[in-house]
């Protein structure tokens, strides 16, 4: 048996030599409104990251630099926050993100069957995006909907009591839309 000593921490290497990608007008206003809520601009980091992500689906290095400038932080400080949280994507994701709950109640109620079916259908592993950029599959911790297990979030919509067949149906619908 080989013990794993590595951590589960994400490994991401940003390149700060890249050009800054200035915040657009919408991002500027939305971030300014958030900064207003706190005594220190840094406290708006998560909101700023989310605002950017909402616009372009993920947060690029250039945008991290722009946020850092706006919040008077270093890019590394902003990135250390960005990489800490599950729902901030530092790499491009598909047009539809499917987050399948892999926690205990969903596991008891059939998560493994769902994961198997959907990875087979799309021919990608969890954590990957289909080559056409349509769908990203992510495992996600307990979604607080264990009374409807097994569940997934498809395009920000909670879908409940899934079966492999019903999940595949949702996947195909998402593929048609994009």
């Amino acid at each position: 048996m080989t013990p794993i000593i590595a951590t589960d921490a994400a490994t991401h290497c940003a390149d700060w030599r890249l050009k800054i990608e200035p915040l657009n007008e919408h991002e500027e206003t939305a971030i300014a409104a958030q900064i207003h809520h706190y005594p220190q601009p840094q406290a708006a980091t998560i909101e700023a990251l989310k605002i950017v992500q909402q616009q372009q689906g993920w947060v690029s290095d250039g945008k991290v630099k722009a946020i850092a400038q706006r919040l008077k932080m270093s890019p590394d400080e902003v990135d250390s926050v960005a990489t800490f949280y599950n729902k901030i994507y530092r790499q491009p994701v598909g047009r539809t993100v499917i987050s399948i709950c892999d926690s205990v109640s969903c596991w008891i109620m059939g998560y493994q069957g769902l994961a198997q079916a959907v990875t087979q259908e799309l021919n990608i592993a969890l954590g990957e995006t289909t080559p056409d950029g349509a769908i990203t599959l992510l495992p996600t911790p307990c979604l607080g909907a264990c009374d409807h297990a097994p569940v997934a979030i498809v395009d920000d919509q909670l879908t409940r009591q899934l079966t492999p067949a019903s999940l595949i149906l949702l996947v195909r619908r998402a593929q048609e839309q994009t």
């Binding site: 589960d8 994400a10 530092r90 892999d102 596991w107 493994q112 954590g127 495992p139």
Partner: peptide, 9 residues
């Protein structure tokens, strides 16, 4: 299957 590739993203 649990999340082993999650780090990728």
């Amino acid at each position: 299957l649990n999340g082993l590739k999650k780090e990728a993203i």
